[in-house]
């Protein structure tokens, strides 16, 4: 089986977000970049499947500029066999989905995260499914392969559902599909020599343009209430905050 895992290269979950150039550009100063946490679940499940099903290969794909290569190497260190980087700024969801669709032909299983944690759109998997005419399921909490059938548990508001579809298929993953994997020394060494192919993007008409960024207005100071004055809190929630 051929598995493609699409990874985003995103600021660490603890990063402070700032913008520069008059709020038109993300400030990368001091920011640590990681494999998107959901994409990391997708990768972990792919590696498990590789270990369980003989003849399975795992390719990782990222749409990004040269800065993303350390992130891609990390995915190789975790256990992917080879990688493709589509050399372009990930302009918008449709652009990214179109690049992925271009390379995803011939793969049996295309795994992604449920959403990227920078733009949080949660749609690239659905778009790739549409572009390729394949089923797409997200967010997937459990994924088992049974011949050409895939059995999945999908989270829905307030619960979950059992879904079945045939390969080839696109899935957006989330926990507890697999445990995040940490690269070991051997993985890190071998990642250096695993193939990482750089390809140029196909042209896609852009349908959206980011015009500016904004930070939320900072919160006012917290009002502390004594532990033996909870009635006071109730009054404040009613009359001051007006949320009760």
């Amino acid at each position: 089986m051929k598995i493609l895992v699409c990874i985003s290269h995103v600021p660490d979950t603890t990063s402070k977000i700032n913008f520069i150039d008059n709020n038109t550009k993300f400030d990368t100063a001091g920011v640590q970049f990681i494999i998107g946490p959901y994409d990391d679940y997708a990768l972990a499940r792919a590696i498990e499947l590789k270990e369980a099903i003989a003849g399975t290969t795992v390719t990782v794909l990222n749409v990004g500029t040269a800065e993303t290569e350390p992130t891609i190497r990390k995915a190789l260190a975790i256990g992917a066999d080879d990688a493709v980087r589509v050399n372009a700024e990930p302009a918008d969801s449709l652009f990214v989905a179109s690049q992925i669709a271009e390379h995803a032909k011939g793969y049996d299983l295309i795994l992604m995260g449920r959403e990227s944690i920078d733009y949080n759109s949660g749609v690239v998997h659905a778009m790739v499914g549409d572009l390729l005419g394949l089923p797409s399921v997200s967010p997937v909490m459990k994924l088992e392969i049974d011949g050409t059938k895939v059995k999945m548990t999908r989270e829905i508001e307030g619960g979950k559902e059992q879904v079945e579809a045939n390969l080839p298929l696109v899935a957006g993953c989330q926990e507890p599909i697999a445990e995040w994997k940490i690269p070991n020394m051997r993985g890190i060494m071998s990642a250096k020599t695993k193939p990482l192919k750089v390809v140029e993007p196909i042209s896609v008409n852009s349908t959206v343009t980011v015009t500016k960024f904004e930070l939320p207005t900072p919160k006012g100071a917290v009002k502390m209430i004594a532990a033996d004055a909870v009635a006071d809190l109730v009054t404040k929630l009613k009359n001051e905050a007006k949320v009760l």
Binding site: I17, K212, F213, E214
Partner: peptide
């Protein structure tokens, strides 16, 4: 132009929908 929440609520961006 629409304003959307990004970076998991840590920021917003304005996007022009061109089509």
């Amino acid at each position: 132009k629409v304003k959307r929440s990004i970076y998991t609520g840590k920021a917003f961006c304005w996007q022009e929908l061109k089509n």
